[in-house]
Design a protein around this nucleic acid. Structure first.
Lengths: 120, 120
DNA sequence: TTGATATATGAACAATCATTCAACTATTCA
DNA sequence: TGAATAGTTGAATGATTGTTCATATATCAA
């Protein structure tokens, strides 16, 4: 009888102790989920550029569209993703909405990323 | 005549000076591309967990699969993504391949991310 | 050599995603 | 009030992605 389907429970442990030690240290599922969502939010060229631009200056949607050479709609859609992940905040001034980074962390996170990229 | 299609060139500038000032500061396209790819590589729950696990211990594929409750194949596929982005490195010991974080940055980047998530 | 095990990988499929277009709200100002 | 402008949003669409399954490669041990 040939077994083809790989089942989780049949995988061999190489170092069971090590695995349970690491398992204990793992963050809660919720934390991991949010963390990956945060990175995912930064993981798109348009959004990366938005974040970088906002690390330099507070900007309105219209000017971001200009800066990135795309449409206001596309920018607005991406800003919602960043808003949802609490990466940017905004203030309204009449018709115009000005966006900026939500807090200092974001810039640190970003700078750390740039440092990694430079050493690739 | 009603204009429906939004064209890039027709967007109004709100603050042209500000836009060109930020434009000058923008990193090269290549840097932005790599940066977003790096974040994207971290932006998946399976890969996030792999990175966290490796920040604790060097691990083989088999044990990672156990730890995450998934298959070796799934882990292996995700490790390739992380390898491509130079986020993990590996050493071979006989049949077994041990993975670890490529450098210290990665942990910093990750910790900065966790700090953000905790303040959400 | 043969069988077993650790890992890698290609193809396929469903799910997710970014952008576009059209339509909508809200605000200004004439 | 009504036209113009800034921004948001829903639906549609093509592209990308994560997992699974099957198979391939590499190493070890008998």
């Amino acid at each position: 009888m040939k077994k083809t389907r790989e089942e989780i429970c049949e995988i061999t442990y190489i170092d069971k102790k090590k695995v349970s030690a690491v398992k204990k240290k793992m963050k809660p599922e919720m934390t991991m989920q949010r963390l990956s969502e945060t990175f995912k939010a930064l993981g798109d060229a348009t959004r990366t550029k938005i974040i970088f631009a906002l690390s330099q200056e507070e900007l309105c949607v219209c000017d971001m569209a200009h800066l990135l050479g795309t449409t206001k709609s596309a920018v607005s859609h991406q800003l919602r993703v960043l808003r949802n992940m609490k990466l940017v905040k905004y203030r309204k001034d009449g018709k115009i909405v000005f966006y900026s980074l939500d807090d200092e962390h974001i810039k640190n996170l970003f700078d750390e990323g740039i440092r990694h990229v430079k050493e690739m």
